[in-house]
Amino acid sequence: MSVLVVVECADGEVKKSSLEVASYGAQVAAQMGTTATAIAVGEANEANLAKLGEQGITKVLYDAEPRLKDFVNNAYTKLIATAAEQEQAKIIVLANSNIGAAVGSRLSVRLKASLATNVVELPKISGDQFTVKRGAFSGKAFSDVVLSGDRKIIAVKKNSTEAQHDAGKTAEVTSFSAQLSDADFADAPKQVVMQDQAGGVLLPEAERVVSGGRGMKGPENWHLIEDLAKALGAATACSKPVSDVDWRPHHEHVGQTGITVSPNLYIACGISGAIQHLAGVNSSKVIVVINKDPEAPFFKAADYGIVGDVFDVLPKLTAAVKALN
């Protein structure tokens, strides 16, 4: 019996959300008196995998099959299922990412496991009762969910748990093969197109986010948002009306029908704070609101606020950050 952690890698690096997942899995293993093994997916580097010891992982399984570099739903599912059987894993932990959710849902059927996604805390284990807390109602609430059965899969929400770092500890990296055949790669992508990310930060993984609303008056003013984001090492985001009129791309839309983020810092510029937008951001640790309307509902959900014109305030903030660094 053990805990199996699915670690996503890109360009040789373990993704930040997967460091959180590794740490989460190791803590669940400790709760259960067992050890945590990781299975790596994506383009991995063995030296970086060994460093997962810092998050409490004992052993890392790695299949060097080159076609596993890009996400292939069937192949990834078979790889992880084979590892779960070999390790007799009762608990599988993965990131609540587009990969984690796609694979986790298939695995739950294949391994007859109960599944909870969007999980925000370590489980409560009391005898046979296994309960996890997860986000529901698109960020407007949480629910405690009891997972039944012998096997459980947990998809952990990004930025909701902190990765532990026990410096210097290493994990044993072991080669592993799930004997994948051509048929397992039938749904492989024909092409992978990455966004231009020159110096940019990916919104779903970002620790800091600078977001703009209709108060920015037009896409030509977005350099004000981008300048502050760049100075802070933050990702840029927007409200739904902004992506609806194509001032910004859809993948930047934060809110109930966009993406839900939980960064350490969310700075909202010229966003009034409709309930659908708040749902997407209210698990952010610190919220800053800049709006010229003192009655904007967003101020009620904020930690810090500036009542003022974004066109005056944003350059001042950018200058102040540059002065600090």
Binding site: L115, I287, V288, D303, V307, L317
Partner: peptide, 27 residues
């Protein structure tokens, strides 16, 4: 395979601390 034991609402914010726009760098 899963059942909801209990729902909860997110914790309320403590209240906003306002910074004067003239002195935005203070933020």
């Amino acid at each position: 395979r899963t059942t909801v034991a209990e729902f909860a609402l997110p914790p309320k914010k403590q209240g906003v601390k306002l910074i004067d726009a003239e002195n935005a760098g203070e933020l």
